[in-house]
């Protein structure tokens, strides 16, 4: 435990281990980012990448790094960070490691909204708006069906699984109604893919992250106290009644905008917070480590998707789906053994 005290009554309390883990993950994300900018059909040296990023570099390098690869990397970092943060918030609110936006149906709801625009046609702004509307509507529905008597326990998870199943049906219906070309495009989008992502896809998400992430992170301490039960949290002065729906809405908005940017990339929101908690071993919601780890995981998964099969790029959602699905199975098994399921 590190305590910093400044004149004027300011004091910060940091866990040495969490701090080291957070810094390590941030460095990892940075290194993966440089690799992502250097790799591809045209290999660049990392030193050239850094020189280009800081304003130098050859014109050809500038085109490859800044115009071709940086938008994709920015989208990957933004999507991963949003999913990691939203997942950590949901899991802390529900006091359940399975309480991630994927399992609760929020991601699927955003997918339904987005898919409607993909099938009917519309701008990327319309897609973002539709995804957020779909996510928030699903969030409100799940909350109304299960959350009135408190968010804890498995009620919300079970209702979420049901809602996810219904929405999967709706998505299937939308796909069958679409013309063949649109359906192929929509299927790729539904898997979650970073192919051809530009600033126009990621800017709404990055703007929302810049606004929401600091607010949500500032609520991290109160969120940790909320994990001890609604009554005790109220007794300790946490305004649970409005903090909870607000944080949940912020998480749903982040997940939805991430889905709008890259499609409903699965399992990062489930995996990142859980891994972060295991690494830091801190009892709190670990919001910042989960955010950074989400970003690092998605960049790594995208690199894997691009390189795993030579001559053939996979959508990133396939990689996160396979790895994250395995993690979910493992989580279900261990949670069951620990008697929490």
């Amino acid at each position: 435990m590190i305590v910093l005290r400044l004149p004027g009554g300011l004091s910060l309390r940091l866990r040495a281990r969490a701090l080291a883990v957070g810094a390590g993950i941030a460095l990892l994300a940075l290194a993966l980012g440089v690799l992502a900018l250097a790799g591809g059909e045209q290999l660049l040296r990392p030193a050239d990448v850094l020189r280009t990023l800081t304003g130098g570099g050859a014109p050809a390098d500038r085109f490859i790094v800044l115009d071709l690869r940086l938008p994709r990397l920015a989208t990957a970092l933004g999507v991963g960070a949003a999913l990691g943060l939203a997942g950590a918030v949901c899991q802390a609110l529900l006091r359940n490691p399975l309480g991630s936006p994927d399992v609760l149906g929020f991601t699927q709801g955003a997918a339904t909204g987005g898919l409607t625009v993909v099938v009917l046609g519309g701008s990327s702004l319309a897609l973002g708006a539709a995804a957020v509307a779909g996510g928030l509507a699903t969030g409100a529905a799940v909350y109304a069906l299960a959350g009135r008597r408190g968010l804890s326990g498995h009620r919300l998870v079970l209702v979420g699984i049901g809602v996810t199943a219904i929405l999967a049906g709706v998505n299937g219906f939308l796909l069958t109604r679409a013309p063949l070309m649109d359906a192929a495009r929509a299927t790729l989008w539904l898997t979650g893919s970073l192919d051809g992502r530009g600033w126009v896809n990621s800017l709404p998400l990055l703007a929302a992250l810049a606004l929401l992430a600091p607010a949500v992170l500032a609520g991290g301490r109160a969120l940790g106290v909320t994990g001890m039960g609604e009554d005790l949290a109220t007794a300790l002065g946490v305004p649970v009644r409005w903090l909870r729906p607000l944080l949940l809405a912020a998480a749903v908005a982040l997940v939805s905008l991430a889905a709008a940017a890259a499609g409903p990339v699965s399992f990062v929101a489930l995996t990142a917070p859980h891994l972060a908690r295991r690494l830091t071993r801190a009892p709190g919601p670990n919001l910042l480590p989960a955010t950074l780890l989400g970003a690092a995981l998605l960049v790594a998964a995208d690199q894997l998707a691009q390189r795993a099969v030579t001559g053939h790029q996979l959508p990133v959602g396939v990689v996160t789906g396979v790895l994250g699905g395995g993690h979910l199975v493992w989580l279900l098994a261990t949670e069951r053994r620990a008697g929490r399921l």
Binding site: V3, R5, G9, L10, S11, L12, R13, R95, A218, R221, A222, G224, V225, G227, M228, G229, D231, L232, L236, G237, V238, R281, P283, G284
Partner: peptide, 28 residues
């Protein structure tokens, strides 16, 4: 009341200080 997984005694007792603390006044 539920103690968060793995929390230590000192950390749990410290949470009693929550109403007296803030974002920039975490541990006086």
């Amino acid at each position: 009341s539920v103690a968060p997984d793995g929390i230590t005694v000192a950390d749990l007792v410290a949470r009693g200080r929550h109403p007296h603390q803030g974002l920039l006044r975490q541990w006086s």
